[in-house]
């Protein structure tokens, strides 16, 4: 009895596998073709990423460690320590920290107002639509828009002066300055914050607030003990993303200030363009420095974002 029971799995009856074997080759080419078709769908992205992101990045990183003749060197990185390069880096970092901080703060307030402020739904829809457009509105058009509104002869400047008697220039405000560039950057930083933080605010469950309230907490205690800690990884992550976004922006600064404000992307541009300062390999090193800083900011964003998602899943 026992032997018979054990014997069965060892020597199974030959149960006609032939039809299965005969059919199995047919689906394989179909599956392969389907898989190939799926890869074909993402091929444009892969090619684009390879040509305009991966290969240039490799070229820059390698170039940062090479002499013009192609030999290995650390001289280019050492060149980053000179005041003419350190100062732009510090200026870029200051600008990025300030615009990221203000963008986060103002964006959070606006997003909180439309998601939890009890306002009509259409305001939220309108703001999110506008934010989608504004967060991508940068470069020469944005610079021109600000010059046309807040420049010396801009519409707002003129209206303020003619109608309200406020002379912007007399207050010390100058669009082609650190403050002006900060203001211009905020035009896309705040909407980007709104777009990113709105889903996180939506993730704050009504029951959390109600549970906190019925346990005796005030609104401020709920925000301090529950809502902000839950949002904190998202806030820090978005701050890092906004920092990277600002740090890498070049066209807006270039179009707005020309070369009068030396932020990193502008001196990088100058090094590579070669009008006055031509040292492409120092340019590679500067670009490498930018990659490292934005890379760290993006890494912080990814880590904190995944932590936030773990909590609210």
């Amino acid at each position: 009895m026992t032997d018979a029971t054990l014997a069965e799995p060892v020597a199974p009856a030959p149960v006609a596998p032939a039809p299965v074997a005969a059919e199995s080759p047919a689906p394989r080419p179909r599956r392969t073709a389907a898989l190939a078709l799926k890869w074909l769908g993402v091929a444009p992205f892969m090619i684009f990423a390879l040509l305009f992101l991966i290969l240039p990045t490799i070229h820059i990183v390698l170039g940062a460690f090479q002499t013009p003749e192609g030999a290995f060197t650390l001289r280019n990185l050492a060149g980053l320590a000179v005041p003419q390069v350190v100062r732009p880096f510090m200026l870029s970092i200051r600008l990025s920290l300030l615009t990221a901080g203000l963008g986060c703060l103002i964006g959070l307030i606006l997003a909180a107002a439309v998601t939890r402020g009890g306002l009509p739904g259409w305001i939220r829809d309108a703001m999110l639509t506008f934010s989608g457009v504004a967060s991508n509105f940068a470069g020469v058009p944005l610079a021109f828009a600000f010059i046309a509104t807040l420049g010396r002869l801009g519409l707002v400047t003129v209206v303020l002066k003619e109608v309200f008697g406020i002379n912007l220039a007399a207050t010390g405000f100058n669009l082609i300055s650190f403050a002006g560039l900060t203001l211009t950057y905020l035009y896309f930083q705040i909407p980007l914050m709104i777009l990113i933080i709105t889903p996180a605010l939506d993730g704050l469950k009504r029951e959390w607030r109600e549970a906190a309230e019925i346990l005796g907490a005030s609104g401020a205690q709920y925000w301090r003990m529950v809502a902000l800690p839950v949002l904190w990884p998202s806030l820090l992550g978005t701050f890092a993303l906004l920092f990277a976004n600002s740090f890498g922006a070049v066209a807006t600064a270039m179009a707005l200030t020309g070369s009068s404000l030396s932020i990193v992307p502008i001196i990088l541009f100058a090094q590579i363009r070669g009008d006055v300062l031509q040292d492409p390999h120092l340019g590679y090193a500067i670009a490498f420095g930018m990659i490292v800083i934005t890379g760290i900011a993006n890494l912080v964003y990814i880590v904190l974002r995944s932590r936030a998602e773990k909590w609210v899943r």
């Binding site: 469950k205 029951e207 959390w208 109600e210 549970a211 800690p229 839950v230 909590w311 609210v312």
Partner: peptide, 9 residues
Amino acid sequence: FQAYALFPN
């Protein structure tokens, strides 16, 4: 609450 409503943090 139906959906527990524990504070995730």
